[in-house]
Design a binder for these strands. Structure first.
Lengths: 257, 257
DNA sequence: CGCCGTTTTGAGTCTAGTCAAAGGTGGTGG
DNA sequence: CCACCACCTTTGACTAGACTCAAAACGGCG
């Protein structure tokens, strides 16, 4: 399978300062089917894509956009015309209920897609906020669609990206619907671990980009509860947390919480 | 916009016996963008689709399949080769965690799509169980894909169906993450109300196809809690529930819970 | 008519939420 | 470089809402 290497498989110590190493070769949304997949640190571009396909692919993502920490890549009701992949930094997506309540629906790291929700109504359906100074590839949807039409392998890859989003959300619903607070935090850390590993970072030692409040909102619990659960997992010797710096001491134990 | 009428806009009393009136013209998954949409009782087939397109569309969904109550249309890990739309009856989709916990991720009524989760890994990712004797249109994915390739309006409609699924799941996550038990039940009834209306049934008077347990599982609460919330809403004069027969007395009040 | 699965209701328990206060951390400007 | 400020995090005490267990009532079906 043709694929683009995302990172060398060495583990740079996560820069506590906030700025991650960039990698200009993350060309297309990484296809990540739920939390089961332990994919290698490579981004499958499209099964059977030829070099020509790749050249075309590059041509439609020539633009990038920088988003400062706390700023929005797009907001709810913005007209939809592009999808994005994270090149550097990370984002959260938030939907807002009319009564003002907010729900964080996901966190997106390097190589992951943003904006797929907008396709449905031609307007974006959530806010995408940068959690640190970030950069995205901008993929104009009209161009992507025409490329999909020309190259069936890319078409199918795009279907999979969309479907993968559906599967990922199902798994999030499962968490919100059935797990205790402790299990949610444990599952969250393990999910991050898998994603860090897939990006060539250490799966046991990473720096959280989001606050306890954002985490809690994503997990459907309050920030104080998140904090208590971190303390609890720490007492059990499963993780070692100093603020946002996380070390997973016992992954197996964590998965059995 | 070319569209196919689903039902006459009269309200047949829901058959408490279990068998709904069938309608052979529900040809393609109904595109339902979240819970905001109060769409008319018509199924948009594809913006700008021509009559020729429709003929082609009919040709790929010639097969139907009947599923008896309690039986599965497909199960997790079944190989994916088709998507489905509900012609009659209704379904629930359930994902199962390795520890045996289950989460109902959705209920599907006439005109709604099933199986989109399978695209991602070529295997289905949940169980689809009939809640009553039901019938689906079987759409072989390979054929749909080739049709999408030939007819761009159908292609774009399919993108919207996929994206709509993502948006709907986001809204479900919001419910699971932020609402009280009472609000969940109220929101659930209002969602059903909108969907019933879109199908030409009464939006205030309908028969639930699922048990309290299935509802509770979907809503992330226990069956006893569902029952208590029904009693509470009834005391407030917002709904009138006799077992599975529901009458929404005060929709506005219900939306303000 | 009786059985089985479903629903309702009650009483007691426990998890997570709320409110409050103290302790950290990082970023900014002097 | 340090001090200050704003924001984030931790912890405690108390409360509220949902869960558990239990039993009775209901409803559909053979």
């Amino acid at each position: 399978m043709l694929s683009v290497q995302v990172k060398p498989a060495i583990y740079p110590a996560p820069a506590a300062s906030g700025q991650q190493a960039r990698n200009p070769s993350a060309a297309f949304p990484h296809y990540r089917p739920g939390r089961i997949d332990h994919s290698p640190p490579a981004v499958p571009v499209a099964k059977g894509a030829t070099l020509l396909d790749l050249t075309r692919l590059q041509s439609i993502i020539c633009t990038t956009r920088k988003v400062k920490r706390g700023n929005a890549l797009y907001r709810t009701h913005d007209p939809f015309d592009s999808i994005y992949t994270v090149r550097a930094g990370c984002f959260k997506t938030v939907i807002t209920h009319r009564d003002g309540k907010e729900q964080v629906t996901g966190f997106q790291f390097m190589g992951e897609a943003l904006g797929l929700d907008g396709l449905c109504t031609e307007r974006h359906n959530c806010d995408a906020i940068a959690l640190e100074d970030s950069e995205v590839s901008v993929i104009r949807f009209a161009l992507l669609a025409s490329l999909c039409h020309q190259v069936s392998s890319i078409q199918h890859h795009f279907y999979r990206v969309l479907s993968g989003e559906i599967v990922r959300e199902s798994s999030h619903m499962m968490m919100l619907g059935t797990m205790s607070a402790e299990q949610r935090v444990a599952a969250f850390l393990l999910d991050l671990s898998v994603r860090m590993k897939a990006r060539g970072y250490s799966p046991v030692d990473f720096y959280l980009r989001m606050t306890r409040e954002e985490m809690g909102n994503y997990l459907g619990i309050k920030l104080e509860t998140v904090s208590r659960m971190f303390s609890k997992l720490q007492k059990q010797g499963l993780v070692d947390a100093h603020g946002k710096q996380i070390r997973i001491v016992n992954p197996l134990g964590l998965s059995r919480v």
